[in-house]
Structure formats: C-alpha cells, structure tokens
C-alpha cells in the first residue's frame, strides 16, 4: 500500500514543492526563549504527555502481562514484577495454535481488504464529488444509512450467504480467506467513502478541468492526478480499514474454520475464551505482536497522513 502510494506520488505531473513553503517559512530558530518556546510548542508536549499516559496506560498492563508467564491481566500493583519472554517464545511453539500462520493470514487479509476498500471507496468518492447525477444525494446518504443497521444479527445472513456462494464457488465460500475479504469489501462504501468524499471536494475542480483540456481521459485524471493529491486521506482510510479488519472477530470466526486459515483476532481469542484454561500471558503477548501491524503501517503512512502535500500543491 505504502509502496504504491509512493510511486503514485512520483508520477504526479505537478508535484508539490519538496518542502511546502508554508512550513519552511515557519521553521523555528534553534534558540528560542523558553516562554516563546512554551507558548508555541512547549505546551503541546504537555498535552502530548498527558495523552500518552491516558492512551498507553491500559496497554502497559497488557505488555506487563505478556512478560509475566502464567500471570493474569490484573497485575496492577506489580507492574513488570517479572520480565520473561517465555510467553513470546511459547506463542510460536504451540502445535495447535499456529500463531505464525495467523500472522501471515492477518497480513494478507488485512492488506487486501484495506487496499480493496480504499480503491472501491476512492472510486465512489470521486464519482460523488466530481459528477452530478440523479440520486447522488440519495446515494450518499444511503451508503451511510446502510451501515447504521444494528449488526447484532448480521452473522446469520452472512453465514447463509457464504454457504450458498460456497455451493457454487467453493473457493470463495465458507472457510475461504478470499470470501472473508469479499465480505469486508461489502463495507467499503460507507463512512470511509464519506471521509474521502469530503477530501475530494477540497481539491479544486480546476485541476480536473486543466487536465481534461490537456486531453486526459477520466480514468487518467482519476488515477494519475487526483489520487496522488488525495493521498493523505487514502492513507487515513487505509489505516482505518486495516485496523477494522485486524480487530474484526465475529465474521472471521464464523467463516474461517481451519486453524491454519484463521486470523489473529480469532486465534488469540481462543487463549482466553475458555474459562477453565485462560492463558492471559500468551494472549497478551499475541496482542502486543498483533498491534505491531497497525503501528508499522501508521509509521509507514504517517508522512502521507500528515504530509502537507495538499497544502503545498493546491493553490
């Protein structure tokens, strides 16, 4: 994902300046008086520290639990009382819980579903943003409304659907990762489309017009001009869909049956779902490793998410 975005950026016919002028102009001098530093950025660090504590604290518990084999989750008063990597080692050596396979599956499913969602969503958002057609408003609201249906019972319908699909095409029916990805793509049009739509709207139509005058067809305008310009939102949506896929549990657990095919969320859950054989430490270790995926993706995409690319090129 990140790779394709990056190359797309390089192909941009009108790339933004290497560094947006608005940013460079304001680059602070090395030595600022403390008060000025504080009023400009210092207080932001205070906010940052507060938020980091709020955000990370519960997770510190989890991390601590992962280093405490045989322990439980609520080791409140003895954080990091024990530091052992045994749970991490065990995690990869369980014959019936193929953690490594789950990891690979999750990467495959997560990235496919996320890339697909971004693509489908961007196509739709472009249509909604740039074209005027009957049913446009209605369509926009409908895709949001559809997602508002209480999902309490969705599984019944989805299972049934995949069962029927599997009767015709076993490769994409029950117990198939492709099938699961397809189900996830069902949610591609939705809130994320709206998010992209809003962003597309901020790209001046004059850019499209100029390209069209230059003789570019609609597909070329979309793929080579518009998409690179909206990369921040594509990155955000990619991340959002990836996280949603990673933590999705219910559909995956019903559709994927073989332990070899399951995802991290489903597999890890087995460690704690049985009241009588809960293994918090291994579960926590697995969760920590699982969280690396979105974090890495966020790191990779961060410069697109907060690139200032648009500010630099659209004027």
């Amino acid at each position: 994902m990140a790779q394709s975005l990056r190359t797309a950026t390089h192909r941009t016919p009108r790339p933004g300046p290497a560094e947006p002028p608005s940013v460079s102009r304001r680059t602070p001098t090395r030595r600022r008086p403390f008060r000025r530093w504080f009023s400009q950025t210092g207080w932001r660090h205070l906010v940052g520290i507060a938020v980091v504590i709020f955000a990370a604290f519960p997770l510190v518990y989890v991390f601590s639990a992962s280093l405490n084999p045989g322990g439980t989750l609520i080791t409140a008063n003895t954080l990091f009382g024990n530091l052992s990597l045994r749970s991490y080692v065990d995690l990869f050596n369980l014959p019936r819980q193929p953690f490594a396979a789950w990891y690979v599956n999750t990467l495959f499913i997560g990235f496919s579903a996320s890339a697909g969602s971004v693509m489908l969503g961007a196509l739709a958002a472009y249509a909604f943003s740039r074209m005027r057609f009957t049913g446009r408003r209605f369509g926009l609201i409908t895709i949001l409304l559809v997602q508002m249906f209480p999902q309490l019972l969705a599984m019944v319908a989805i299972f049934l659907l995949m069962l029927s699909i599997g009767e015709i095409f076993p490769a994409i029916g029950l117990n198939s990762q492709i099938g699961l990805i397809m189900v996830y793509l069902g949610g591609a049009l939705g809130v994320n489309t709206y998010l992209m739509y809003g962003f597309f709207n901020t790209i001046p139509v004059s850019i499209d017009e100029a390209a069209r005058i230059d003789g570019a067809g609609h597909a070329r305008i979309f793929f080579t001009i518009i998409l690179p310009l909206v990369s921040p939102i594509l990155a955000v949506v990619a991340l959002l869909s990836l996280v949603a896929t990673l933590s999705e549990f219910v559909i995956a657990s019903v559709l994927l049956r073989d332990p070899e095919k399951q995802t991290l969320a489903v597999g890890l859950y087995q460690f704690i779902s049985q009241e009588t054989s809960q293994n918090w430490s291994i579960f926590a270790a697995g969760a920590v490793l699982a969280a690396i995926i979105p974090v890495a993706l966020f790191l990779g995409l961060q410069r697109y998410i907060v690139s200032g690319l648009v500010a630099g090129s659209v004027k």
Binding site: R44, A56, P58, L59, V243, V295, F298
Partner: peptide, 26 residues
C-alpha cells in the same frame, strides 16, 4: 499536533493510535 514546529509529534501520534490498534475485547 498539527503544528509543524513541534518536534517528535510523530511519536505522540504513534502512541495515540495504540488504543485503536488493540483488540477491543481485551
């Protein structure tokens, strides 16, 4: 954190998405 003058906001941002990246039931 949208201020370009601020250093190391990358790391703050990273920690901030952690709650989102963890399995909800956990």
């Amino acid at each position: 954190f949208n201020d370009a003058r601020m250093k190391s906001r990358k790391y703050y941002r990273l920690v901030m998405i952690l709650p989102y990246a963890f399995p909800g039931f956990l």
